[in-house]
């Protein structure tokens, strides 16, 4: 904890607004403690910038404990940095070495336009969910919770999928900027549970259609999303979405 910290060179994407061209700028940051989180390191950078009269680097963050999905960042070309199943806010500087140059870029996707510096607009994800990522049940008319037994294995698999934090790393890491992992996580959760069965065909058709409308690319099964996902969502969910989709297209009454 004591003693000299690391000296780092940061190569940070700066962009004043969505219409601005943007460019990389280099910053020198000295005496960085290995116990800092990556975002705390950026806090220190920003304090330094304010002192120098340069506007601080904008980056999204909130809970700083890996669950809200607000933080992002492409760090040296990897979504959320080098660790697996870790968000940027939980990445610690002990993963870097003295003298490193760290490149920090925003998520890049047509469906995630840059707002400023490293901040992007991910409302397209909300629109995908609003297309069908729910069970149509109003408050007040639910039956007793134990009326509907759910096999433990199904519940566990549904929970695995439901753990998605909606950060967008899957889109950022995919060479096609595809949102299949995100969308499939929600479709999977609902299709594994009996509660989701009544509207499963509608759900998958509408969500996939919306995903395409938003300008996300298509899945070519490279599994980069799974590797980048901080919540450990598996590409098995994508297969499940595909299965649901084909079933809905071929057998359901939707779209007649």
């Amino acid at each position: 904890m004591s003693g000299q910290g690391m000296n780092l060179t940061l190569r940070v994407w700066r962009q004043a607004g969505s219409e601005d061209k943007g460019e990389f700028r280099f910053y020198q940051l000295n005496n960085v403690s290995e116990h800092m989180s990556f975002l705390e390191m950026l806090d220190v950078l920003n304090e330094q910038l304010i002192k120098l009269g340069e506007e601080p680097v904008a980056f999204d963050h909130d809970c700083r404990e890996g669950i809200c999905g607000m933080c992002s960042l492409m760090i040296n070309g990897q979504a959320h940095g080098p660790d697996n199943e870790t968000t940027t806010c939980q990445l610690h500087m002990r993963r870097f070495r003295d003298g490193d140059t760290i490149t920090i870029e925003p998520w890049r996707a047509k469906a995630f336009p840059v707002i400023r510096d490293l901040v992007v607009d991910r409302t397209s994800f909300d629109r995908v969910i609003s297309a069908g990522g729910f069970v149509s049940v109003n408050a007040g008319n639910a039956p007793d919770a134990n009326c509907l037994p759910v096999p433990k294995q199904d519940q566990e698999k549904a929970m695995d999928a439901a753990a998605c934090i909606g950060c967008g790393a899957c889109v950022a890491a995919c060479k096609n900027a595809s949102a299949m992992l995100f969308t499939s996580a929600k479709v999977s959760q609902m299709s594994l549970l009996p509660q989701g069965k009544p509207e499963r065909a509608r759900r998958v058709l509408n969500m996939v259609a919306r995903m395409d409308e938003e300008g996300f690319g298509s899945c070519t099964n490279t599994s980069e999303c799974e590797a980048a996902c901080p919540a450990g969502i598996s590409v098995d969910n994508i297969a499940r979405l595909n299965r649901e989709y084909l079933k809905a297209v071929v057998f359901s009454d939707e779209g007649i």
Partner: peptide, 22 residues
């Protein structure tokens, strides 16, 4: 068709990009 669409879906590419697959 898909590769053209996928290129558009990415937009501006990354300055650096490396896989996280292990």
């Amino acid at each position: 068709k898909l590769s053209a669409e996928n290129r558009i879906a990415r937009g501006r590419g990354y300055a650096e990009n490396q896989s996280k697959r292990q």
